Computed example of a mutant assay.
Amino acid sequence: MDLHTVRTFVAAADAGQFQEAAAELSITQQAVSKRIAVLERDLGVRLFTRTARGAELTIDGQAFLPHARELLRVAERAAASVSAGHRPLRVDVITLRSAQSGLMRGFHRVHPHIDLDVMTLFGIETAVAAIRSGAIDASFRAVAAPGRPLPEDIASMRVLDEPLQLLTGPAHALAGARSVTLARLAGHRIWMPGLVPGTEWAAYYDDLVAEFGLTIEATGPNFGSEALLDTIADTPALATFMGGRTRLVWPADHGLRRIPVTGPTPVYPHSLLWHRDNPHPALTTLRAHLTATTTDHDAAETWTPSWVIPS
C-alpha cells in the first residue's frame, strides 16, 4: 500500500476538506483527489462523501482511519530504526565478560541516554565486514593481525592495554606467588581451549609462545568459562591466562588465584574499529569517552607482538 496515498487520506480526514489537505501536504487539490481515488480503487470502497462543507468520511472511511494512522506510525518507527541519529549504537565485543564489555558499561554509566546494542561477533574479519556493511558501528579488536592490514575505509584507535594474569588452582606450584615472570612460566602447562587458529587472539598467543618459550595447550573442546574454571581448580598441573580486567565469578571452594605476570608484563591491546564514513553521532561520543579514559602504558615494561598497531 502506497504510504503517500495513506498520508493524503489521513490529512484529508483530519482537515475535512481536500483543499486544506493539499495545502498541508504542499500539493495541488487535484493531486489529493487523484490519490484518494487511487486508494479507493485499491480498497474497493468509498472513503469520502463530498458535501457542501467539504469531505466527510464514509462508514468504510471511518473504519479505515485508525489503521491508516497505525500504518504511518509503523513507517516512522521503521525509518527511525535505521536512522543514525535515532537507532541504538551497535558495538561488538569479543565476550560479554571481557574488558571491552567493561569499557562499554563505563560508557553507559556516563551516557545513560544513549541507546546501545552490544553484541559478540567471531573474529576480526567478521567484525570488519559487519562494520563495512553497516550491521555494526564499531568493534573492539587487536589490530592488525599478521598479513591482515585494515581496509583503508576502516579507522582504529588503541583504547586499552590489558595486562595478562595467570589463573591457577590452589594446589598449583605457583599458587602462592605474589607475581610470576614470563621466564618462570617456561615449562608450566597453560591451558587455553578457546584459542582458535586464524583469530587475532590466537595470533597474539602464538607470538607470546615463540618469544618466551611458553607451553600453551589449546586441546579439547571449549565448553566455556565455567568448565575452564572447574578444570583449573581441580588440576594442579594446569594454569591459564586471563585478562586482568576480565570479570569472572567462581565458587569460593575453587580457591583460584589470579597472579600478575611480569618481566615484562604481556598486555592485550584493545583497539576500537569503525568506518570512516559512519554518521552515527553517538560514535563520536564513544570515541571521545574512550580517549579520555585510555590508560597509559610503559612500552619498556610491557610486551605486545610486533604486528600490533602502535598506540
Score class of each variant (00 low, 15 high):
92 D>P: 11
79 A>R: 13
75 A>I: 09
73 R>Y: 05
98 S>M: 03
221 P>D: 12
42 D>M: 12
198 G>V: 01
297 H>G: 11
271 S>G: 12
304 T>H: 10
82 V>F: 09
105 R>C: 08
277 D>F: 15
56 E>Q: 15
159 V>E: 00
54 G>L: 13
161 D>Y: 05
185 L>H: 02
296 D>L: 12
121 L>F: 00
7 R>M: 04
173 A>N: 06
218 A>D: 04
21 A>N: 02
296 D>N: 13
201 W>F: 15
34 K>S: 15
70 E>N: 14
5 T>E: 13
29 Q>S: 11
126 T>E: 13
129 A>K: 07
123 G>I: 05
215 T>N: 14
263 G>T: 10
165 Q>S: 13
273 L>D: 03
217 E>W: 09
66 P>R: 09
3 L>D: 07
1 M>F: 10
45 V>E: 08
150 L>Y: 04
81 S>M: 01
52 A>G: 15
178 R>P: 12
62 Q>M: 14
89 L>Q: 07
124 I>W: 06
274 W>A: 05
208 L>H: 00
218 A>Y: 00
142 A>W: 11
156 S>P: 08
227 A>V: 07
109 R>N: 08
113 H>I: 14
182 L>I: 02
75 A>R: 09
227 A>T: 09
144 A>R: 09
282 A>D: 06
41 R>Y: 08
17 Q>S: 14
29 Q>V: 07
254 H>L: 07
245 R>P: 07
189 R>N: 14
173 A>W: 03
176 G>T: 03
210 A>T: 06
60 D>L: 15
159 V>Q: 01
84 A>L: 05
161 D>L: 01
148 R>I: 10
215 T>H: 13
133 S>L: 04
231 T>H: 09
53 R>Q: 15
273 L>Y: 06
279 P>C: 00
71 L>E: 10
56 E>D: 13
62 Q>G: 15
311 S>L: 10
203 A>G: 07
170 P>I: 01
147 G>T: 04
249 V>W: 10
11 A>E: 03
264 P>A: 04
114 I>G: 02
267 V>I: 08
234 D>G: 05
86 H>T: 15
104 M>S: 00
11 A>P: 00
13 A>S: 06
93 V>D: 04
105 R>S: 12
202 A>Y: 10
265 T>K: 02
229 L>R: 05
85 G>S: 10
178 R>D: 14
149 P>K: 11
207 D>G: 06
64 F>G: 04
235 T>H: 01
129 A>C: 07
285 T>V: 09
6 V>L: 09
4 H>R: 13
88 P>L: 02
23 A>L: 14
101 S>Q: 11
104 M>P: 06
63 A>G: 06
141 R>F: 09
166 L>G: 08
161 D>E: 00
229 L>S: 02
275 H>G: 12
291 T>K: 08
160 L>W: 07
236 P>M: 05
213 G>T: 02
253 D>N: 11
9 F>N: 01
8 T>D: 01
251 P>Q: 09
73 R>W: 04
179 S>N: 13
